[in-house]
Design a protein around this nucleic acid. Structure first.
Lengths: 136, 136
DNA sequence: ATCGTTGCAAATGGTTTGCATTGGC
DNA sequence: GCCAATGCAAACCATTTGCAACGAT
């Protein structure tokens, strides 16, 4: 039973958050918590099936929702009905490649937004810049 | 046949863009091109049904797609699988009220984003700030 | 008469839910 | 033995599509 680094890390994280560990959850978490991609639920499913052929789609969806609920994962709806998962739970901005659809994180410090104080009558709790374009 | 200001304006706009005018299209365009709300397709449908009880959902969806295609309308996917339509086709930012879900436009000049030049290897074609919070 | 538009209903794609089964503790 | 997690299939919701009927030109 070769447990990878990602799996051991995932196991640790699940336990720390009082989430009962199981093979599907371990496989899902090991992938989704380690990747820099922004996979959709179905992409996670495809990926996890390679390792654990029996997992059902429902389990993947339910586990992702669980991880979001426990704040281990963020859910973004950035484009075209694509609900996407992101292990980076710190504040950051997003870049969407128009050609590939690929979503990348932009470190928080890299962009600065000014003028927010000028928004009258609103209490801002969060904001982000969404950049669209293409890699060259 | 009482034609409102919005309807006459919509008729004009449709004609100018070589879109054949019909009662459903007129009702849809009159509402969606005039409102400051960011209605979903179904919200448009509800609204239009009040005036034209017979319209089918499909016609509303198809007409909205047509208006987007003709660049009379923008489509945004800002939150929670909500595909939303916006008659403001100029660049602008968005504010999402977390309590009501209401989406408002923020004029382009009101916020400034700096640091975009520092994004290496990408050609930026568009960007916007998405602000979440609550009105007070 | 033709072509575009409509309404209906069925198909689709992504996500959730119900339920009986399985497996940890 | 009990409760939680799983797999499967059915349900669901928003959107799209196929098609026959209709209306304007």
């Amino acid at each position: 039973m070769p447990s990878t680094v990602a799996e051991r890390l995932a196991q640790r994280i699940l336990q720390d958050h009082h989430i009962q560990v199981s093979p599907p959850r371990l496989a899902i978490a090991a992938y989704v918590l380690a990747t820099d991609d922004h996979p959709s639920a179905d992409q996670v499913w495809e990926r996890v099936k390679a390792e654990l052929p029996g997992v059902s789609r429902a389990t993947v969806y339910n586990t992702l929702n669980l991880l979001v609920e426990k704040s281990l994962l963020c859910e973004h709806v950035l484009a075209e009905g694509r609900r996407v998962y992101d292990a980076n739970t710190e504040r950051h901005h997003h870049f969407i490649d128009e050609r590939t659809g690929r979503i990348e994180n932009i470190p928080w410090g890299q962009l600065k937004v000014s003028g927010l104080e000028g928004l009258g009558g609103v209490k801002v709790s969060d904001y982000q810049v969404v950049v669209r374009g293409r890699r060259i």
